[in-house]
Each structure stands twice: as C-alpha cells, then as structure tokens.
C-alpha cells in the first residue's frame, strides 16, 4: 500500500520533469491555436452562429484594424488603451500603497486593528460599483471619480491580505529575531514584511483584477474615452466585432499587468526558487 503510494508520487515527479520549458510553451500555444481554429470553424466554416450575435475571426480582425488605424469611440486604439491603463495604474498605485500601509499598521498593532475594523467591516460589503453615483456627485464624470472607485475596489484585498500576511508570520521567527538583538523596527523590516510578502502579492493580484473590473464598469456608466467607452459605443452600434476587440484589449492589458506583477514578485522572492 505504502509502496504503491510512493511509486505513484515518483511517477508524478517524472511527469513534471518530462515537460521541459520549450515543450510546455508548445503545448500551451497548441491549446490557443485549437481554440482559434474552433472559433473560425464555428463562425465561418459551419456558420453555426450568426455574425450579428458573435463575430468571426475576420470580422474581429477588421474591427481591430479600424480601431488601430482610423479610431473608434472617439480615439485610436493606443489613445483608448492609454486612457484606461493610466486610470488603472493610478488607481492601483494609490490602492496598493494605502492598502498595504493600512494592512501593515493593522497587522502590527492590535489596537489599530480594533480601532479600524468596525468601519472596515461596515464598508467592505458595499460593492465598488455602488459608489459610482456618489463618486460622480463628488468628482464629476471625469477621471477622478473613476480613480476613486478603482481605489475603493482595489484597496480592500490589499488591506486584508497584507493584514493576514503579517499575522501569519511564524511567531518563532519573530522571537528568534528579538533574542538576537533586533529592534521592533528591524523585526518589521527583516521578518514581518518579508514573511508577509507572498500574501501581499496575492492581495496585489486580486486588487489588480478588481481595478480592471471596476474601470470597465465605471466607463460603461459614463466616460468620454477608454476601452469601456469603446464597448458602450460598439454595443449601441450593434458592432460585435468591435465589442470583442474591446474585450480582448481588457484581457491583454489585464494579463500583461498581472505578468509584470508576477515578474516583480519572482524577483523579490528569488530565494524561494534558489
């Protein structure tokens, strides 16, 4: 029985080793290509779906060309992308710095946590989008109201994960640092922060996703520029190709920014892979 289990574990280990990096990329690419082919076959070959309901790859391609070269919804692709990305990055930066800071304060001080928690618990269940009317009332239809709503959406996961990260740092590590002469400041810098880092990054990733979700929703409600604006206009024009292009833009930008975050995380947590 035990032998079987051990044997199974070894076999699984062999399987993981067999997939070298190049091979892994190849398999992932193959998956993507198959999805594209299926899409083409369903929309163009078999014509199972009407192009008014779901665009074919060719429709999407021509919509993408239009957005890149002549523009749509008030701007060229790069202008719309820049507008949305800028808001996400600003909102994310403000949310990440304030959220991580508050998470650290609540993590190291029970008193601060007790003080802040009731307010936090009360605000937390309010969906970010429910803030949009108030945000527009406060800041108008411009960028500031969107940054505010993005900040609110992204703030919560940052605080909660940083707090949990700080709290779950091994107490023995903290004790070991203290008995070897570390001041509270050094314990925070050398033990609590590095120990919390993996969870902080989990929070940042969730927070970045929340940024994009919220931004698109906010732009749907009211915007003069941006990917969300492209989506709204394309919906009004009944232009499925353009709707899909806008959605793919959000996907690509979201994935790209998450990738950057992952690279930073791997740099900072390099010791884990040593």
């Amino acid at each position: 029985m035990t032998d079987n289990v051990a044997g199974g574990g070894d076999a699984a280990g062999m399987n993981i080793r067999r997939y070298l990096p190049q091979r892994r990329t190849l398999i992932s690419l193959a998956g993507l290509v198959i999805v594209l082919c299926l899409w083409a076959v369903v929309t163009m070959g078999l014509k199972l779906v009407s192009p008014v309901r779901f665009p074919s790859p060719l429709d999407t391609w021509s919509a993408a060309r239009q957005l890149i070269f002549t523009g749509y919804g008030g701007g060229l692709l790069w202008e719309q992308v820049w507008h949305s990305s800028r808001l996400v990055l600003l909102g994310f930066a403000v949310a990440a710095s304030s959220g991580v800071a508050l998470g650290i304060i609540m993590g190291i001080s029970r008193r601060a946590q007790l003080f802040i928690n009731p307010t936090f618990l009360l605000l937390r269940p309010i969906p970010p989008l429910a803030w949009i009317p108030l945000a527009i009332l406060w800041f108008g239809l411009g960028d500031t109201s969107k940054i505010f709503v993005i900040w609110y959406a992204a703030f919560v996961p940052c605080v909660l994960n940083t707090l949990a990260g700080i709290r779950t740092v091994d107490k023995t590590l903290i004790a070991a640092a203290r008995v070897h002469g570390a001041s509270p400041g050094r314990v925070l810098r050398e033990v609590q922060l590095p120990g919390a880092l993996p969870m902080v990054f989990t929070g940042l990733r969730l927070s970045l996703q929340a940024c994009w979700t919220t931004l698109v929703a906010a732009e749907l409600v009211g915007a003069f520029f941006g990917i969300g604006r492209v989506l709204v206009i394309a919906g009004q024009d009944i232009y499925p190709g353009m709707i899909l292009v806008a959605m793919l833009c959000v996907a690509a930008l979201g994935a790209g920014m998450t990738k950057v975050l992952t690279v930073i995380e791997q740099r900072l947590l390099a010791w884990r892979f040593a």
């Binding site: 091994d170 023995t172 590590l173 004790a175 070991a176 640092a177 203290r178 008995v179 070897h180 002469g181 570390a182 001041s183 050094r186 050398e190 033990v191 590095p194 947590l269 010791w271 884990r272």
Partner: peptide
Amino acid sequence: PGPDRAVVFQQFALLPWRTVRENIGFGLTC
C-alpha cells in the same frame, strides 16, 4: 529580550529569505 541571552529553537527559526552567512550575521547586524 536581548542579545546577551540568545535562544536556539527546536524549529531552527532561520530567516528563509536570508543566506547562511546573513542568518549567522543577523545578531551582529542588529
């Protein structure tokens, strides 16, 4: 707590993100 009374723990309690050299030198840095 103070560095005049160092503790060796059952679970080693080394900083996982620090090298052997940095871990040994931790108290001296402090």
